[in-house]
Nucleic acid binder design. Sequence first.
DNA 1: GTTAGCATGTAAGGAGTTACATGATTTT
DNA 2: AAAATCATGTAACTCCTTACATGCTAAC
Lengths: 189, 189
Amino acid sequence: MVLEFAVLGLLHESPLHGYELKKRLDAVLGRMRAFSYGSLYPCLTKLEQAGYITRDASGGAGRRSKVVYKLTAEGKEHFQGLANEAGPSQWEDDAFGVHFAFFSHTDAETRLRILEGRRSRLEEQREGLRARLTRAREALDAYTLALQNHGLESVDREVRWLNELIAVERTGGLDSRRGPVTNDPHTVS
Amino acid sequence: MVLEFAVLGLLHESPLHGYELKKRLDAVLGRMRAFSYGSLYPCLTKLEQAGYITRDASGGAGRRSKVVYKLTAEGKEHFQGLANEAGPSQWEDDAFGVHFAFFSHTDAETRLRILEGRRSRLEEQREGLRARLTRAREALDAYTLALQNHGLESVDREVRWLNELIAVERTGGLDSRRGPVTNDPHTVS
DNA sequence: GTTAGCATGTAAGGAGTTACATGATTTT
DNA sequence: AAAATCATGTAACTCCTTACATGCTAAC
């Protein structure tokens, strides 16, 4: 599950309480996803029961307990395990972005496999889109056509981004590099 | 609801049975969304009970009934109503694409309002992203940074696309034009 | 004659949201 | 002292998926 993975990933960096966790979550996930407290708190309870995190209710004096969550050893292990899986579920839309956000916890081999998996998944989708567009071009109204074209270009763009990332990965990974890897038209070949 | 809207929109063009409907749904929604039969068939039942569509079980001879669904007058009216609403729920990620796909059923004024609403929504998100990136640039690891940059560029790209569409809209709308509106680097000013 | 695709549905359950309930702390 | 924001949680509900159950029809 995406939320569980992201929570473990964030707690991997430092212990946090729920409220702060949600803000980081919103920041890390950006536009891809947004979770409410109504799913975050139950998720934390679940992770605690599973033994992956511990709650430290630092109830200073009469304060309403501000609960700080912290990754356990098993939690760390579990997260490493999840971060280093490389199956189809790692390159589906939803999961891919989240896994990518925690790529610094994923080993080089798995990173490459996930990036390549994602790319071929997108290439499939692209071929499907292209086929439909050339087949049905005349039957579609102008707005549907514009949307489909925009979608096609989005896929194209992500594929180019992945190509760059894969190239970088093959020469040591992003961490060993200085410039940002972006899709800016100027930097794309 | 997105699924209901899309079903009504597709049936607006011609009567269809469930299986064919799903294929069209997959085609129209493209990468933005995918629904299973497990939600499509109950949705059709619901729309029928609401009086928006009728089922015509053309059970030719001993065949297992191949149920053809058809929009009723109220269904048509209801769809027009939905297609011509212009509130925040029309420019949120999920809804926007679907509404756009059926823009030929939306009047020019509403189209413009939805496009502008979507644009300002994205501009907000973009400012949030930019702020975070300039603030925390050094604190983020390389992969998170790459992801955030890619996200930022995606938003930028969609804003440019919307700018083009809005410009076209102000001079008569997409239907009255020949060329495709794409985001191809060459065609963007 | 068997595989693949066409075709329709249901039941159980997963994942998440909304709305609510509560209260502390900081800023204005 | 009011408003904003920090902070934690729960219950009911919505939407959708998965897995199952069933059977037809075309192609190889």
